[in-house]
Simulated assay, not measured.
Amino acid sequence: MSGIAEVQARIADIESRIAAFNGTRASTALQATATTSATSASSVSSATQFADVLAGGTVTRGTRTVNAAWGATGAAGASGTTGEQLLAVAKKHTGVPYVWGGTTPAGFDCSGLIQYAGKQIGISLPRTAAQQAKVGTEVPSLAQAKPGDLVVLEGGSHIGIYVGDGKMLHAPKTGDVVKISKVWETPMTIRRLGTTAATTAAAGLAAAALVTGTTGAAATDSTAYVRPASLTTSKSAPYDAAFTAAEGRYGLPTGLLSAVAKQESGYDPDAMSPAGAIGLMQFMPGTARDVGIDPRDPMQAIDGAGKLLASHLKTFGSLEKALAAYNAGPGNVRKYGGIPPFNETQNYVKKIMANLGSAA
Score class of each variant (00 low, 15 high):
G56I: 06
A41T: 12
R61M: 08
A69W: 11
T60W: 00
A69I: 06
T60C: 01
N67C: 03
R25M: 08
T48C: 01
V53N: 00
A51S: 15
V44I: 14
G62M: 03
S45D: 11
S40T: 13
S42D: 13
G71T: 05
A51T: 03
S43Y: 12
T39Y: 10
A26W: 04
V44Q: 00
A29W: 14
A69P: 04
S46K: 02
R64G: 00
S46Q: 05
S45T: 12
D52G: 07
T60N: 07
G62L: 05
A55F: 01
T35D: 12
T39F: 08
A38Q: 10
T39S: 07
Q31T: 13
S42F: 13
G71L: 04
T36E: 04
R25V: 15
A68H: 01
G56E: 04
T28K: 09
F50Q: 01
T33F: 09
T39H: 06
L54I: 15
T58I: 12
V66E: 06
W70P: 00
V53P: 00
G56A: 09
A29N: 13
T63H: 13
S27T: 12
T39N: 08
A55Y: 01
V44G: 05
A68C: 07
S37E: 10
T58W: 11
F50W: 12
T60M: 05
G56Q: 06
V53W: 02
S43F: 06
A26G: 04
R61C: 03
G57E: 04
V53Q: 02
T58G: 05
V66R: 02
S43V: 02
A47L: 10
F50N: 00
A41V: 08
A26I: 15
Q31S: 09
G56M: 05
V59I: 14
S46F: 03
A41P: 02
T35H: 11
T39A: 12
T65V: 12
V44W: 02
